[in-house]
Simulated scan of single mutants.
Amino acid sequence: MSGIKIEQLNDNLVISWLLSKIEIPISEIVEVTLDDTYGGEEKTAIRIGTPYGETDRVVIHTHSNTYILFTTNGVSIKNKISSFMND
C-alpha cells in the first residue's frame, strides 16, 4: 500500500493517496496539528489514508474544512506542510 504524498504546486498543497488527489490553497490553511485520537476528534473531517495500521494523525484545519491524514510519518508531514505555509 502506498503512503500519502505531500507536495506544493504553485500556491496549493497537493495531497496524493492511491488514486485520489486533493488540492488545498495554502492561503486557506489555518493550522496543522497532530492528533492522538484513533479516528480524529472532528466528526465531519475529510479522512485521507487508512486509520488502521497507521500510528500518526495529521490534522489540517482550513477556513472551510478539516482534513485528517492517517500516516506513519506524521511529524515529517506536519513539518513539510508548515514549511509550505512559511514560504
Rank of each mutant, 00 (worst) to 15 (best):
I29K: 01
G49K: 00
D35G: 03
T37M: 08
T37D: 13
T72Q: 13
I81Q: 03
S83Y: 11
S27N: 15
R47S: 07
P51C: 02
S2G: 02
S27F: 14
M1P: 13
V14K: 11
I81C: 03
L69G: 05
N86F: 03
N10V: 13
I15H: 11
I15W: 12
I4Y: 00
L69E: 07
I4S: 00
H61T: 01
V59W: 02
T62S: 12
D56P: 00
I77D: 03
H61C: 00
V32H: 01
S82C: 09
N12Y: 13
T71F: 00
L13N: 08
V75L: 11
S64Q: 14
S2C: 00
L34P: 01
V32N: 02
V75H: 07
V14L: 07
P25W: 12
F70Q: 05
E23S: 15
E23V: 10
V58E: 10
V59C: 13
T66V: 15
D56G: 00
L18Y: 00
Y38M: 11
V32D: 02
D35Q: 05
G39H: 08
E7Y: 11
L19V: 10
V14R: 03
K78T: 04
N10E: 15
N12C: 10
V58H: 11
G39L: 15
I6P: 05
G74I: 01
S76P: 01
G39Y: 14
D56A: 01
L34N: 08
T44I: 06
Y52F: 14
M1L: 14
N73M: 04
E54A: 12
G49F: 00
I6H: 10
H61D: 00
T55G: 07
I81Y: 01
S83K: 15
N86L: 09
T37N: 11
N12I: 02
I48R: 05
I29H: 00
I24E: 04
V32Y: 02
I22C: 03
R47C: 05
T44A: 13
